[in-house]
Design a binder for these strands. Sequence first.
DNA 1: TACGGCGACCGAACAGTGTTCGCAACGCCG
DNA 2: CGGCGTTGCGAACACTGTTCGGTCGCCGTA
Lengths: 280, 280
Amino acid sequence: MLDGPPATREQEHKRKDSRMTAKSEDTPPEPRTGALPGIPSPWNRPRRGRTQPALSRDQIVAEAFALLDAEGIEALSMRKLGARLNAGATSLYTHVANKEELLALVVDQVFGELPLPVAEGAEDPKVWRAAVLECTEGMRAAINRHPWMVSVLGDVGMVYLGPNWMGISEALLAVMETAGFDLAEANDVMNAVMGYTIGTACVEAAWLSALAKTSRSEQEVMDQLLPTVVAATKDFPRLHRLYTTQVPKEIAAGRDDGFVRGITVILDGIEATRAARRDG
Amino acid sequence: MLDGPPATREQEHKRKDSRMTAKSEDTPPEPRTGALPGIPSPWNRPRRGRTQPALSRDQIVAEAFALLDAEGIEALSMRKLGARLNAGATSLYTHVANKEELLALVVDQVFGELPLPVAEGAEDPKVWRAAVLECTEGMRAAINRHPWMVSVLGDVGMVYLGPNWMGISEALLAVMETAGFDLAEANDVMNAVMGYTIGTACVEAAWLSALAKTSRSEQEVMDQLLPTVVAATKDFPRLHRLYTTQVPKEIAAGRDDGFVRGITVILDGIEATRAARRDG
DNA sequence: TACGGCGACCGAACAGTGTTCGCAACGCCG
DNA sequence: CGGCGTTGCGAACACTGTTCGGTCGCCGTA
């Protein structure tokens, strides 16, 4: 992270070429080179020219990722993204068809962060359960780490065609096959587990990103919100009890346990199915 | 639906008042009344005035709902919605704080379509399983019927504070309590089941709404897409097998079975937990 | 060496978007 | 009758995604 080359490369592309626009007050047109603007000189001539292009798809995706993490989904505009790359907004379109395509690429990038579950030793129920648990927890964590995901997942129709998503799917299928399921069953299991993970993470992350917009702590917001909520539940006795007793506890505990309990129940169901199949 | 008052009321509000703008070519300014524009007469005077306002929150939400169903999420703009209500775009803001708030209201409206699960007789496993199954299938169907839901669910942080969502939650909790779970457990079960439902429905509906944009049949799109997909899976043998054998079958079968198999597994897990708790 | 072609890049422009503001019109209450 | 609160709206603002036409500088060929 701290060594030279990557940072240097970034600097280089950020500089792009120095053909200047007529815009004046932005940055004074490179006064410290001593070269008159427009006259080529070693200091204002395009660094390496066009053949290794200033922009690349990967850089765009990476920068979009960073922008999303830093400022959230509604801060991502093509113009702002272009500016961050020291490029015009329209330049992005030579590398990316659409904003939608860009978002699809970014989403798959997120899945690329996750470690792949390993199938080795998955005949042992303990092992495959641990593998699945780790995989789903990782995915939940990733979505919570990048709450803008939930605003995007719904618009990206083709997530599961991205290479990183495919990698995860393949690995998960391998785990389940090793555990003794045939492919169709493994697929069902994967859908159940992934569905649960994405669904809960969606609800959670929607809350988290609503939270992020008010720049207050979760505890603080909750304290402020609970009276209203409790009042709103007066016609719903069970929800009322839930919000007065259970929910504050969950919030304090960090919500992780609830997720694990859910996935445990699902894994129990899966194992029961598997046992039934072997015995029957 | 066909009797007088409601239709009449709608007509009435669509007419709003007839103070005219300067716009000319739109509709000729009521020539058939015989009244000069601007001069009050029984035919161009505001029908009933403002005290029963021309616009109401409910009407706005209903019209937004219709527009979303008809043209999808990106066709919903405040201006277009206003136009559909024969009102200016800005008028909406006296009834709705935001576009976001509007969307939240619409989302809760969708949940209002669903029948509530009933707790009666839920001590019998067969009964509560059927109740939960019906509830989740209904929700999945609703999301698929309104695929724009998935684009919106992520942005609406507070879904579970809407009255309709609360109604469903309360009813589900009642079912699970009757089935013998305590409140905390019932909550876990609800989260697991709802998480799975929302997650799978999200993936499904994202596909469906991508599909809707190409105006071709699912079979047609699939035939066109499969070769590409199969080619893309060449490094993933299990996915490859899945897409060459399993997936076409699922598509043909309508995808319903997969959902039911998943929820069945989860219910198995829940029942196992319940049995263990009773026996232990 | 000259030149055509090509791919990257970008400014201007288009057709919208959500939202704010100030003003006009009206019914109601005093 | 006069002020008040509510409701509606036109204009305006600051943006948005995307297209188009054009420019620039390199590469392969002649």
